[in-house]
Amino acid sequence: MNRSQALHDIEHSSGNGELEEATYRYALIIVDLINDAAAEELLRCQTSEEVSAWIRRDALDWQAKLSDEAFAEWFEIGHSKSYGCIEQMLSCIDYEFVFELLLSMRQLD
């Protein structure tokens, strides 16, 4: 699956209400990183559990790099947002969906 197809599938699934906001956001991040040499660790993931661990580390890295306001806005975390805290956001990600997306995009390599 190429980048355009992946984005279409993500948008379609999201538009049909099949994806949580957190899954949607991380699916987009995966699509953007798939061709990035810095994503070697992500590309080595062989299970949805490994993807889950990678996403957890990535989310914590984003939290450390961004201001509190920017992080809350990007990940919809905080009062009156989709998720009350980072742990709630992480628990709502469909890691199997993200892993399948990663697998389908890796097949192009």
Rank of each mutant, 00 (worst) to 15 (best):
F97W: 06
A27R: 10
F99M: 04
E20I: 02
E20Q: 12
G17W: 07
S80Q: 11
I29N: 13
E20K: 13
I77W: 00
L19C: 14
I34C: 06
K81N: 00
E11P: 03
A6E: 07
V51K: 00
A70D: 14
I10P: 02
L101C: 08
F99H: 10
I10L: 10
L60S: 03
A70Q: 13
I10C: 07
D58Q: 13
I30L: 08
F71H: 05
E11R: 12
E96T: 11
I30V: 15
Y24E: 09
W54P: 02
E11N: 11
L103A: 05
S52T: 03
S104T: 06
R57A: 06
E40D: 07
I34E: 07
R44L: 11
S104G: 05
R57C: 07
A72N: 08
I93W: 04
D9M: 15
C45Y: 00
H8I: 06
W74G: 04
A27W: 05
E40G: 07
T23P: 05
L101Q: 10
L90M: 10
L28K: 13
E87Q: 12
S48Q: 12
E20W: 08
L28S: 01
G78S: 08
G17R: 09
L66T: 01
D61Q: 15
Q88S: 07
L28T: 02
L90V: 14
N16K: 14
L7T: 08
I29E: 11
A39M: 02
T47R: 11
Q46Y: 07
E21F: 08
M105Q: 12
L90I: 13
S52M: 09
D68L: 02
F99L: 00
Q46M: 13
E96G: 04
H79V: 08
E69H: 06
A38V: 10
A53P: 03
D94L: 04
A38N: 14
I10T: 04
E49D: 14
A37S: 15
W62P: 05
M89H: 00
F71T: 04
L66Y: 09
F75G: 00
I30E: 01
Y83D: 03
I34A: 08
D68M: 01
T47F: 11
Q5L: 14
G78P: 03
E49Y: 13
Y24L: 09
S91L: 09
L103S: 09
E40V: 01
C85S: 13
L60Q: 10
Q5N: 13
S48H: 10
H8M: 07
Y83F: 13
E40H: 03
L33C: 00
D94H: 02
K81H: 01
S67R: 09
E73S: 12
F99V: 00
E40N: 09
D9A: 11
R3P: 08
E76L: 03
H79P: 08
E73F: 13
H79L: 06
H12Y: 10
I86H: 00
A70F: 11
D68F: 04
